[in-house]
């Protein structure tokens, strides 16, 4: 199912990130996602997240699809030139994948193969335009595709916490023009700032899904504040988590996230949960957030 249908029908969608493992055994990941079957609309499968080598997004998406779990395939510009990107887009279509999230991708130096060549032949806007072209039966060189054209629901990313915000919004508009049908954001912890962002982009008329990283510990929150662009976990949240004993951290973390979801859900059209290994806690979180 295309995610855009969900936005049209329900006006709201919930997705959960799924990070493929570094290895070929996917049973553990799939087992962890299984309890979310009826709870989320799609699983967003990362493409070598943080530039760390893992099994591919496309293969993982296909395996999810075979089990009746709806995937969103992330596709970054970091590792493939335009030939490989277009070929992978066609391959994804032949495997029945219907949702694509087109991203620039982190730089390879941030990952576990810092020696790798950074490709970035296309940027995220150009990738969206290229996929749109394939959907219209033409490759980037203007050649006709044979037979049926691929058909995708296209997503893109935006960082509402970026400073300055203006170039992010200008680029977001370009992504919409290029074919993006929905957006998911970097993790949001400042509701007022996010409300301001939503107001600024409301005239784009495109569904925005607020991103949420489950904070596992105060140290993790501080690490994100220092190292992840556009993420700012306010001190109140860090203190709130730090105030409970370790054995109650999971519950407190879920309470904080549930509260954020309740505040964010009225501002936007969806929630995208980045659980980072805490997939098993997501059902409880959704229940607490009354989603």
């Amino acid at each position: 199912m295309k995610l855009i249908e969900r936005f049209k029908q329900a006006g709201f969608a919930i997705t959960c990130e799924a990070g493929p493992p570094k290895g070929i055994e996917l049973n553990k990941l799939i087992d962890e996602l299984e309890p979310l079957r009826e709870k989320v609309d799609a699983f967003n499968v990362t493409d070598l997240q943080s530039s760390v080598l893992r099994v591919g997004s496309m293969a993982t998406c296909r395996l999810l699809k075979e089990r009746g779990l709806e995937p969103v395939m992330q596709l970054t510009c970091r590792d493939r030139n335009r030939l490989a990107l277009q070929s992978d887009v066609l391959s994804a279509a032949t495997l029945g994948i219907e949702n694509l999230l087109c991203l620039t991708g982190d730089h390879p130096t941030l990952g576990d193969h810092p020696q790798a060549m950074p490709v970035f032949d296309l940027d995220s806007v150009q990738l969206l335009a290229a996929v749109k072209g394939l959907m219209n039966g033409k490759d980037m060189a203007g050649n006709d595709l044979e037979g049926k054209s691929p058909d995708f629901c296209l997503g893109a990313a935006v960082n509402p916490g970026a400073d300055p915000l203006e170039p992010q919004i200008i680029k977001m508009q370009k992504k919409v023009n290029a074919g993006a049908q929905f957006f998911q954001t970097q993790a949001v912890y400042e509701v007022d700032k996010f409300a301001d962002f939503c107001e600024k982009v409301s005239d784009l008329n495109v569904p925005v899904m607020a991103g949420l990283v489950l904070i596992k510990s105060p140290a993790m929150a501080r690490f994100m504040n220092e190292n992840v662009a556009g993420i700012h976990v306010p001190d109140e949240i860090i203190d709130e988590l730090a105030a409970v004993p370790k054995e109650k951290r999971v519950l407190k973390s879920l309470q904080i996230s549930a509260r954020l979801i309740k505040q964010l859900k009225n501002l936007c059209q969806g929630i995208h949960i980045m659980s980072l290994g805490w997939e098993r806690h997501v059902p409880a979180l959704l229940e607490m957030a009354a989603l």
Binding site: T104, H107, Q168, G230
Partner: peptide, 20 residues
Amino acid sequence: CAKGLLNGPCGGAQNGKCEV
């Protein structure tokens, strides 16, 4: 730009500095 992007910033910059 470390990624040589043509259509605007990637969103990875922090305090005006490159993610790399």
